[in-house]
Design a binder for these strands. Structure first.
Lengths: 340, 340
DNA sequence: TTGAAAGCGGTACCAT
DNA sequence: ATGGTACCGCTTTCAA
């Protein structure tokens, strides 16, 4: 391992000077700086990030914690954030929380808050208060933490307006009896302030139904876990039950994929028999057969907002903190699954 | 930030004792240890990983570098490795190289080799020699580095045998004129030792064709970049060209997804007009319409092999190193895309 | 069994 | 403009 001392020695200067020179401090005269840089290059010197981090609290790395690495939406989000960060000269390390409390806690405590200058985090099972403690005072930006008065900066997906847009679109293409997949109707009935992503999307649906003067009942909302297996099984059930829905809004594209597959299993044609809309805009949605109409979250916009917020916090001193709350852009992408 | 000194003070012992106690060193008597643990718990102490890493060179974190976060196969692999590592009490940090040399180099130099005890790496644009230097002496396991005499431990996907299995299957279901998508025929013609994944898979195909006594020419192999857009466009081209292939093997499931979508655009029916096989076994493949027959790499097996190799290297002292080379299990998953 | 102290590789203050 | 040096938090040797 070649260290700063090696470089300093090779360049005939002190460790301090070498350190300043390599970081471009203007106090070092150009020729000395050049001497140091040459020595560093010749020795293939790389700064030790642990040491730098220990001393200065900064190492140019940000952490990102997402639920699952192997699900299309979070991993596309991770890629977008990663690329945005690298545009700012930062590296991103990604970890998966496995959507469990222990996962979230141990990631925050052990890695993200320690090895990084700041973090972007999708909280699922940890309260804001716990987060404050676990963050160790490091800047943190939350994703889709929909609490009414958050204590961290937050970037949200366009839940309400996006869902509303989806329902509007189904009505536009002539649907009269719409099924919403992935939201618990009771969650809002019990608590209009419910802050989960599914509750906010559900709220958007209800608003749209109301705007169109459409009657809906709890039967129009079916809750399942957000995975394609369950969506496929649900489609089978819906078809067998004989209920006559002519439009479906799935809370995520992955659910829509499973649901459409389930309909195909039963010989139900999309969009002729049933129109389907998803949410997220994952890359694959354009390749499904039929291709999927979806409320596409602009991940580049989301990434830019999240990274900028984080950088601002990292660069400021943390006094008089006032959390900001932003929402990512989106657009409705019309495709075959609602084309009729 | 609560440090070890705080804990030591609260427990009325020295820093050294606190350190030993928290790591369960048997030299500390149980009651002292308990006192320390209690203090640590009460103060919500968490060890600073940078400091630990700086001093001892270990922090319980392994690094994983993959090409792209937002592609199904690498992200599923990342998830599998992440879960396997956590079974061994290790955290995994994932980074994407964006399949560029600068990406790979900067990740290795700056983060993975510094912040981690070891790393698992998919090399794309960096030679073994460069890797040795960039690894900074830390243990490293390579994924799909198919050089004949590697200098690191390697876990490979079952390229040759997998591809051979795919072609065998197409022949089994009656295909007579098979197209292979994603491999450059010339790559093998020029260099039978070519070590890229696509060349090894191509080699498997040629072997299978040979076994079945089937004549093939360069026209049976079409190279494109491994993304679904190009696969879709290629399908259009193939259909328009009027060539009469009755079976297609795509080098990855993502390619197959794009290709099938392209066929659907042209009204070509899979599997009746053309049977399609993919490679990887991504989760989505079961949900495509038609569902995709694929050579499914056992990612749990791959993850277990990679993590175990890495752990062995981390725990040993590095003398008389002899690189190992393992291959992940796989199985052919028969689905609708070849069902006839 | 426990404590003192050196040191990992940087950074940043204070001298010179 | 550059150098000396304390120090970030933890581990580990050595001494008591």
């Amino acid at each position: 391992m070649v260290t700063m001392s090696d470089v300093a020695k090779a360049a005939g200067v002190s460790r301090a000077t070498a350190s300043y020179a390599l970081r471009g401090d203007p106090r070092i005269v150009p020729e000395t700086a050049e001497k140091v840089r040459t020595a560093a290059r010749r020795l293939h010197y790389t700064a030790n990030l642990s040491a730098r981090s220990l001393r200065s609290g900064r190492n140019g790395v940000i952490g990102l914690a997402i639920f699952e690495l192997d699900r299309a939406y979070p991993s596309e989000m991770g890629a977008a954030i990663s690329r945005e960060a690298s545009r700012h000269g930062l590296q991103t390390i990604v970890q998966e929380t496995s959507n469990s409390k222990e996962g979230e806690v141990s990631i925050l405590r052990k890695v993200t808050s320690q090895l990084c200058d700041g973090m972007i985090f999708s909280p699922g099972n940890v309260s804001d208060e716990e987060l404050r403690e676990l963050s160790g005072g490091k800047p943190m930006v939350l994703l889709d933490d929909l609490s009414p008065d958050p204590i961290f900066d937050t970037v949200n997906t366009p839940c309400e307006i996006g869902a509303q847009t989806a329902i509007d679109h189904l009505v536009d293409v002539g649907c009269q009896n719409i099924l919403v997949v992935g939201a618990r109707y009771e969650s809002l009935a019990e608590d209009a302030q419910s802050t989960s992503v599914s509750a906010r999307r559900l709220y958007g649906c209800l608003k749209a139904f109301d705007d169109h003067g459409m009657e809906v009942s709890p039967e129009n909302f079916l809750y399942i876990n957000w995975n394609p297996e369950d969506a496929r099984a649900l489609a089978h059930q819906v078809v067998r039950s004989g209920q006559r829905f002519d439009g479906v809004f799935c809370m995520t594209d992955t659910l829509a994929m499973g649901f459409i597959r389930g309909l195909a299993d039963c010989g139900v044609h999309v969009p002729n028999d049933m129109a389907v809309v998803g949410f997220d805009g994952i890359n694959e949605s354009d390749y499904f057969v039929p291709s999927l109409t979806t409320v596409s979250t602009d991940l580049n916009d989301l990434a830019a907002k999240a990274v900028n917020l984080l950088l601002k916090r990292i660069d400021e001193d943390g006094t008089d903190f006032k959390p900001e709350k932003l929402t990512a852009d989106f657009r409705l992408v019309r495709r075959e699954s609602t084309g009729r």
